[in-house]
Design a protein around this nucleic acid. Structure first.
Lengths: 204, 204, 204, 204
DNA sequence: CTCTAATCGAGACGGTACGTCGCGTCTTACG
DNA sequence: CGTAAGACGCGACGTACCGTCTCGATTAGAG
């Protein structure tokens, strides 16, 4: 009996072709993003999301098991876009270019990324970041004193935190280039290890 | 009408002397901390807290307007303890000592700090950190390229994230000194500005 | 932990003394009866009941596990009242008197009993009837050709069906005495067995 | 637009000849009957019915506007079969023969009739019974003290209730003849009036 | 034997009621 | 007479069916 065959979205969402489902999925994604621009993720109710998306309440659960799962999906999507822009430029010899690209992209999607990074969703976004970057940047090496796992956690946390600070401020206060420089000097360069050279702090 | 005359804790909790109130407050603090060691903050219900604290349900609201407010108070308290240990040692000329003190303190209160930093309460703890440190460390100067506000946000976020990573791992995996070194090299030194000298990233 | 201590009404509702609970219980009883006068039991939603009773939705479940359980309670109550009036008069030598008493009582509470017997609740009422009458009339003997269990089921079903027919018709169409006579001749006398002889009825 | 041109079965189902429709109709009838043997009518969902009938969900509505309508149809069909067997034998001078025929028929289709009479469908079955019998037995006269309408309602209710009692009991407990006698003495004879004369029963 | 239209399965969808849970308020009874 | 116990109104949760509505893919039966 297929009495409950209607439950759970397909295992591989990418294979969905039914235009109704695609429309619904996108409507839910957009609705969540729009709501995130105005209130904290955990203050948003599923009923608000489906209301804004013009979608039936039960329909939500035909696509996502929970609010969190929808956020995961949205986060993965957005982080994916960001990565696609930044990763190809990431090159140990010149990290600044990647930082600028990243900041520029974020600056161009200010509203979305402010929502993602300052609206209670940042934890999820960070996890997605770590997941995707450990896939895409597995060749990056850190110097020995910094455990790889910690490097990733730190890098992502620091980056998102800096971006969040930037996005919380009024629009023109800091330029994309300034933030990129901060990012590079404060996070990327120290984490990548400044290999083989000066350690500014006092010796052990 | 004085329908809610009994509501709201006193404006200045520090002035409370009634031993019953003190007992209740402490019981609630401890109950929250113990629960945080076992589950996410937002999965904890007020009824659980008062149950564990052996306190009447309504009594909770005579002391705190909400769960979050209690968490704020607990966070301020714990962060205060931590600050008291670390701040006096903070000296631009030798940051490592402060880092070691901080890690040692956290290591000695592992359970509590793991609860605070990995249990969904970290946002609150961070805010409390920023608030208290901007009071206590207002004399710290960063070099010009790093806005003061961002410096604080970054420093706290990076620090808590690193500590959280540490506390999530099995107990003996990294020593307090190792974490302190990472903290110093990765966060404190770069943020304090590497004053007057070499900037490892390429010039503009 | 008494996290769910609020669930389920007390095992012995008769022992409840809290006036709030009494008010709520009665409001729910009345609301159900009023709604039953206007629509089928299974078309009535719990939300309608609590709406009419001016009671919170969740409160319903603090008193009754389901709509059906509430109906059981209401039915038992009403049937109990009816029994109290009729049973004492039940005497094998003159069943007519009991029939008249029963019809009179029902006639005096026309709206309620029409609701109970014609509104989709009759099954429940019948079961309650059988339950209570097998307690109160256990001394009644049927002649051998009619199994006792069947006698009860038949008597109750026939009686309620006749009353239901009566109550469905316009108010003055048949007098209480006429229905009582039908009841006596059609149901009671045949079921009691017509033991060889005298039929007390017929004489006015 | 003929958006709903496909909706609603033909006004006269008897005129349908398309074998696909016939197959579907029968499958739905059987599915409902089988399910009724295992659970209450109102606990049965349309999705279960179409599942068991191996029929698409929407197809159900191409034949029946609702679950209830399907039940009506099934009830009419089964009651019709029963009537065809019993009615021709109904003769005021010897009601026993018809009673025996009725019980025998029901006994031969025990599962079906238990489903129909004890599974929450009895109300519908009774209505169908009354409708069909008032067509087929309109010549039956009752004595004056019993209104015709009430006679029908009573007769059908009492009969179905007695049968239901019988069918609920273990299979061989009462013979078809015993039930027929009860039916005759308890329901048919009293209702037909026993106008001062012969009572065919009693003599064995 | 085609071909056109009726019929079908599958199942996404907007609804609505369900029963549960936790909140924060307010009443009651008890010590 | 103040405090615990807990009933209450509220509102979101996730589930289950409802009945409507596309979609193709069969499958009749008329040409």
């Amino acid at each position: 009996m297929n009495a409950n065959a209607h439950r759970r979205g397909p295992a591989l969402p990418s294979t969905v072709t039914d235009p109704r489902m695609l429309r619904t999925r996108e409507a839910l994604h957009n609705a969540l993003l729009e709501l995130l621009e105005r209130k904290q993720f955990d203050k948003i109710t599923i009923r608000e999301i489906v209301g804004k998306a013009q979608v039936g309440y039960a329909t939500f659960f035909r696509h996502h098991a929970s609010k969190e799962e929808l956020l995961n999906e949205v986060a993965a999507e957005q982080v994916g876009h960001l990565m696609k822009v930044t990763l190809p430029l990431l090159d140990a010899s010149n990290t600044r270019i990647a930082c600028v690209a990243l900041c520029r992209y974020v600056g161009q999607h200010r509203a979305t990324w402010r929502a993602l990074l300052t609206g209670g969703a940042s934890g999820t976004v960070r996890e997605e970041f770590i997941r995707l970057s450990s896939e895409g940047a597995s060749h990056i090496q850190t110097s020995g004193w910094l455990p790889v796992g910690l490097g990733a956690v730190y890098g992502v946390a620091a980056t998102t935190e800096i971006l969040a600070w930037w996005l919380r401020r009024p629009k023109g206060e800091s330029s994309e280039e300034q933030i990129a420089e901060i990012l590079d000097r404060l996070v990327v360069t120290p984490a990548l290890g400044v290999i083989g050279s000066k350690r500014p702090s006092r010796g052990k």
